[in-house]
Amino acid sequence: MKLTLIQSGGFTGKTKIAEEDLSNHPEELQQFIKQAFLQKPAKKDQTNPDKSRDKESYSLEYDGTNLPLNALAKNDDLDKLIKKMKANLKFKKN
């Protein structure tokens, strides 16, 4: 299954994406992500609180569902994966 990191917002408003094939990752991490997307978000989206709404925001897409990045519970393996995906973000072509 594929996990997509989406970055949007800021002055440019251009979307950047990075994709990762989860089958190359430990089963534990795959299950964590699957469960996270099956459950309701653990906390309210605070990616773009009112005052910093012009700032870039990040979301994750998995199996057709989109969640704000910070809606997922803390997980060290996921953090490492997100760090790697952030380094690989590319502009989405219109």
Binding site: G9, T12, D50, K51, S52, R53, D54, K55, E56
Partner: peptide, 23 residues
Amino acid sequence: DNAFWDGEQMIYGDGDGKIFGSF
């Protein structure tokens, strides 16, 4: 490669030098 207003101040990036230059 972006710029933004964070609610209190402005922030500008340098751009990647390939697609975007300094903001």
